[in-house]
């Protein structure tokens, strides 16, 4: 009996060793595979607004850029506020954002350099097709005032991004224009804070049959592909212009950043090829471009009215990037 248990025990001991040895070998092989860096490529981490990400434009730009450059683009999709926080912590090498006020602060605090305005479109207020609040065709201010009134009467719902993003900043700006503070509105039952990206917020608004502020690009993508049935209530105008910028993280302030790669990518975005990619994206699938290229427009002022709107909304000290915020050898500014 004793002998029997002993024999069996030692056999299992042997099995145990076999398993341990096999496992370790597999581990080493897999670990080598995972840890092995792609030969000769550098990693560029870009914190981007959800609108550029949700529309898919960024994936197409990535493919085109990686064909030309030995730089591996890594996009992290977050709201503008978080994108800036990431960059300040050193977790991103550059940001693609659309909140000029926050961008200026970011640069003045010494974190951002080589800003370039790359694209624009418009924000729009969207809502359910039957328009319970009756705001269709109003100007933004009138629409916001009506929405508050109807919301308090329990006739309308508002879904806010609530995530400190560029779109959220714009929304708070619009509430301020009619003398309301967004954080106080958050206490009211008709006002929902989604706390998530643009695509998801549109879907929440769809489910709740509510109104929300969206950028035209994301709205078009979601509307055209049948993900939401919400309709545009308020047409574009100067107060709803939405300007996208690329900003590199300042290598003097934040250590270990991939500054050279960031500048190369910003130059690509501003190049004729990059601008054409941005301008063409969506025409085939949605009948119109989701983002309009801004570089040539600002250089040639081909449309003086829109140029003025962009300058008013997104220029600091009369420039997209004042000379003291330019670093390195770059031909970004003509």
């Amino acid at each position: 009996m004793v002998k029997h248990i002993g024999l069996k025990g030692s056999m299992r001991l042997k099995n145990t060793y076999t398993i341990i040895a096999a496992t370790l070998m597999i581990t080493i092989i897999i670990a080598a595979y995972v840890a092995w860096p792609k030969a000769g490529t550098r990693r560029l981490i870009v914190s981007t607004t959800t609108s550029l990400y949700d529309t898919g434009v960024i994936d197409m730009i990535e493919d085109a850029f990686e064909e030309e450059q030995k730089i591996d683009l890594h996009f992290i999709s977050v709201g503008t506020g978080l994108a800036i926080a990431h960059a300040e912590r050193g977790d991103a090498d550059m940001i693609l954002v659309h909140a000029p006020g926050k961008e200026q602060e970011f640069m003045e605090e010494g974190y951002g350099v080589n800003r370039k305005i790359i694209a624009y479109n418009y924000f729009t207020i969207v809502g359910p097709p039957d328009d319970p609040a009756g705001i269709r065709g109003m100007d933004p201010i009138g629409a916001m005032e009506t929405l508050v009134e109807m919301g308090r009467k329990d006739e309308a719902t508002w879904v806010s991004r609530g995530d400190d993003s560029g779109t959220h900043s714009k929304e708070m700006e619009l509430w301020l224009l009619i003398g309301l503070v967004a954080s106080e509105l958050g206490e009211e039952p008709w006002y929902f804070e989604a706390g998530t990206g643009m695509g998801k917020t549109l879907q929440i608004a769809e489910e709740k049959q509510g109104y929300t502020l969206a950028d035209m690009g994301t709205y078009l993508k979601y509307g055209e592909s049948g993900l939401v049935s919400l309709e545009v209530m308020v047409e574009s105008g100067p107060s709803l212009i939405n300007v996208y910028s690329a900003i590199a993280v300042n290598p003097d302030t934040v250590q270990n950043t991939e500054f050279e790669g960031a500048t190369t990518f910003i130059e690509f975005l501003a190049s004729e090829e990059g601008q054409a990619l941005i301008g063409e994206y969506g025409i085939e699938s949605y009948g119109m471009s989701l983002f309009k290229p801004a570089v040539k427009l600002l250089e040639t002022e081909s449309d003086p009215e829109v140029t003025r709107w962009i300058e008013e909304a997104a220029f600091f000290m009369g420039s997209e990037c004042p000379p003291e915020y330019r670093r390195g050898d770059t031909d970004l500014y003509g």
Binding site: R43, I45, R89, D91, N256
Partner: peptide, 16 residues
């Protein structure tokens, strides 16, 4: 995170 204690390893946003 790059500003965290192991930031120098540059491991954030990698499979590792």
């Amino acid at each position: 995170s790059r500003s965290g204690p192991l930031g120098g390893l540059q491991l954030l946003y990698t499979p590792a």
